[in-house]
Design a protein around this nucleic acid. Structure first.
Lengths: 142, 142
DNA sequence: ATTCTAAATGAAAATCATTTTCATTTAAAA
DNA sequence: TTTTAAATGAAAATGATTTTCATTTAGAAT
């Protein structure tokens, strides 16, 4: 947690009980959650807590690298704790069954990128690879 | 157009002037449009036309394979005419500058997929590759 | 051609995720 | 402590999309 407090301080964000609680929840669960899911948890701990506070904080946490934002099903975004302090480019895969999200590096997208640039005549600026599948745990249970 | 009327009939959808007009617009422009953009065009041709009619028809056209739906910027979807009657898997790249969308096949994602499955221990079920870049035209103008 | 019926439509309200506004509270610097 | 910029709650606003419901219409049946 000290590590995260340091990040907050460095970015001139105040260390509030609610912020600490949100970060702890991510640390303890190590999963991706929607803003609404975080809100449901927080309502149990704080009698007064607005959904907008959740949105505002998740957004800020993403901006300073504490969380990553991933698009899930249509029109719904998930946030997860960002393990790598270095912001090395990476992608995500989400488990359809348990919603666990795992990061991975992409060692050789460069090659594929060049091929696509040749085919499409586009100069590729961003790429997002979004995968869905079944994680090892869920596969075993099934 | 006869080809598309046939598809409508086969799917028990009535051939209305508005539907014909929407399909023609896609055929003549060969670009991706948002529902709202289609609406703007249609309002010029029909004094009474609701945005819900556009949404309903685009959705149906996608379901029967006349159009494809692509996610653009956050929370905005684009529709484009579906040239390939066969629903061969393909991906899209959108031009950041003019918003033109281009399809492309992905000849060798299989190889990459196997690598990612090995790294993540996920059984990959779906993959979406979403690229942003600058198309040849816009690159030349710049 | 006329009648009939399920589908299509317009208009307006509803939804749903997210953002903004504004008055009040609070963390932490002075 | 005092001060002040940031954080917050509550409610309204937004923006894309969907639904509802009363009316119209395409196309099948007569």
């Amino acid at each position: 947690m000290e590590k995260y407090k340091k990040i907050l301080r460095k970015n001139k964000l105040k260390i509030t009980p609610k912020r600490v609680s949100i970060i702890n929840y991510f640390l303890q669960n190590n999963k991706y959650f929607t803003p609404h899911q975080i809100w449901e948890f927080m309502k149990k701990k704080f009698k007064k807590i607005g959904l907008s506070t959740i949105y505002r904080n998740l957004e800020k946490f993403e901006k300073i690298g504490i969380l990553t934002k991933v698009e899930g099903e249509e029109n719904r975004f998930y946030y997860g704790i960002c393990k790598k302090t270095n912001k090395k480019h990476h992608h995500h895969i989400i488990c359809i069954s348990c919603h666990k999200i795992r990061d991975f590096d992409l060692c050789n997208f460069e090659q594929l990128k060049k091929q696509i640039e040749k085919i499409t005549e586009f100069n590729i600026k961003e790429h997002h690879i979004f995968l869905k599948g079944i994680c090892l745990n869920c596969e075993r249970e099934a």
